[in-house]
Computed example of a mutant assay.
Amino acid sequence: MSLQKSKIQLRKQILQERRSLNPTVWKEKSFQLCKNLETFSLFQSAKTILAYFSIRQEPDLSFLFNSSQKWGFPRCVGQSLVWHIWQRGEILETGVYGILEPQSKAVMIDAAEVDLILVPAVACDAKGYRLGYGGGYYDRMLSSPEWYSIPTVGIIFDFAYLPSLPKDNWDQPLNAICTETKLLMI
Rank of each mutant, 00 (worst) to 15 (best):
M1S: 11
M1V: 13
S2L: 09
L3E: 14
Q4Y: 01
S6L: 12
S6T: 15
S6F: 03
K7A: 14
Q9T: 14
R11E: 04
K12R: 13
Q13A: 12
S20Q: 15
S20F: 06
S20E: 14
L21V: 11
N22S: 13
E28T: 13
E28L: 12
Q32D: 07
L37R: 02
S41P: 09
S41D: 13
S41A: 10
L42N: 08
Q44M: 09
Q44D: 09
S45T: 15
A46Y: 03
L50I: 15
A51Q: 09
A51D: 12
R56E: 14
P59M: 02
D60P: 05
D60M: 03
L61R: 04
F63I: 07
F63K: 02
F63S: 09
N66W: 05
S68C: 04
P74Q: 06
W83G: 06
W83L: 09
Q87M: 02
G89Q: 11
G89Y: 07
E90C: 01
L92N: 00
G95I: 06
V96I: 14
Y97H: 13
G98W: 11
G98Y: 10
L100S: 12
P102N: 03
Q103N: 09
V107H: 00
I109H: 01
I109Y: 04
D110Q: 12
A111W: 03
A111Y: 02
E113A: 11
D115W: 00
L116W: 00
I117M: 12
L118R: 01
V119A: 06
V119C: 08
A126H: 12
R130T: 08
G132D: 10
Y137Q: 04
M141A: 06
E146N: 10
S149T: 15
I150S: 04
T152M: 05
G154P: 09
I155F: 10
I156L: 12
D158M: 03
F159V: 05
Y161H: 13
L162N: 07
S164C: 12
L165N: 03
D168R: 01
W170P: 02
Q172G: 02
L174Q: 05
L174W: 00
C178E: 02
C178Y: 01
T181H: 13
M185G: 05
M185D: 06
M185I: 15
